[in-house]
């Protein structure tokens, strides 16, 4: 039999753990999928949060005043008077009386033919842009109108804002809940697979143990092996979710998804910790499993 030359001087120690087996492939797949779901949830959550913030900011910085003309006044005259009065209130950036046409246009969707309104004293609207830094309060606006003897109601969108904020809160907590659940599932899968992987190499662990390897030494071998595997899976899953987020960002420019789910490029950074977190979870699970296996042998 021909012998391959073996050069003792060039020998390098081989890996103490056997190479990867079929199980490793499915572990990487499952962890990658779970990481993908976790990161996608995080990106969606961040975008939803941004959407809610945007809406409340818009509503916070504006108010609508419904002006009812008193006897002897034209609706437009009353609106103009109210706009003038409100423009002087501190915290109001701009006050505009909506013209008749605009007011009617707002009613059209509900009434259809607005010609019937011609003779009716249709209330006029005054829209206010508030100073975003120190918006005028509802009370100060109402007081000013009263002082000027104008019959009007101010709507500072408080009800809407409260609704949106409540909705955003629910969305935020449920996203967080889903994220935590998926992450916990990923961690459990990693821990489970690590345990199975270790049990399959029990014979190796036993030989190392009986040859005087400390439990920390043996645990370290498995720790690194599984950390590397989970990092790879986390990289795949995180990158997949980031690519999906990038597609949503590019597809949604202006219209489409953007107003509902305004994904920002920065949100994609949620994928960055994925490989590291997966690796840390795997390392801890592998360490715990290896230590308990070695403890069984002692």
């Amino acid at each position: 039999m021909a012998l391959m030359g073996f050069d003792v001087a060039r020998w390098r120690p081989g890996p103490l753990l056997p190479g990867s087996d079929a199980r490793d492939g499915s572990l990487i797949f499952v962890v990658a999928v779970l990481t993908f779901l976790a990161v996608a949830t995080a990106i969606t959550g961040l975008a939803a949060d941004r959407a809610a913030r945007g809406w409340t900011a818009q509503l916070n910085h504006s108010a609508t005043v419904v002006v009812r003309p008193s006897a002897g006044e034209t609706p437009d005259g009353a609106a103009a008077k109210a706009a003038d009065a409100l423009a002087g209130v501190k915290g109001v950036a701009e006050a505009r009386a909506l013209e008749k046409e605009k007011a009617e246009a707002l009613l059209k969707p509900w009434l259809g033919d607005t010609s019937i309104l011609a003779d009716l004293p249709v209330p006029r609207l005054v829209t206010l842009d508030l100073d975003p830094k120190a918006p005028a309060s509802l009370a100060s606006l109402t007081a000013k109108l009263k002082e000027q003897g104008i019959d009007a109601t101010v709507d500072d969108h408080r009800l809407w804002i409260a609704d949106i904020e409540r909705g955003a809160r629910v969305a935020r907590w449920s996203m967080l809940g889903v994220f935590v659940l998926i992450s916990a599932a990923a961690a459990a899968v990693i821990a489970f697979a690590t345990r199975a992987g270790l049990a399959a190499r029990r014979d190796v662990v036993e030989v190392l143990h009986l040859s005087g390897a400390s439990s920390g030494f043996t645990a370290g071998l498995f720790q690194w092996r599984f950390a590397r595997m989970a990092a790879l899976a986390g990289l795949f899953g995180g990158a997949g979710a980031a690519i999906l987020g990038a597609l949503a960002r590019m597809a949604g420019g202006g219209a489409g998804l953007t107003p509902v789910l305004p994904v920002a490029w920065i949100d994609l950074a949620a994928a960055i910790p994925a490989p590291f977190v997966a690796a840390i979870v795997a390392a801890l699970a592998a360490r715990a499993a290896a230590l308990s296996l070695v403890r069984e042998m002692a």
Binding site: P13, L16, V204, S211
Partner: peptide, 14 residues
């Protein structure tokens, strides 16, 4: 999974 050489070297590595 290790060569004969690596098997013998094992206790020394440990």
């Amino acid at each position: 999974h290790l060569s004969a050489f690596d098997n013998v070297a094992l206790p020394l590595r440990i």
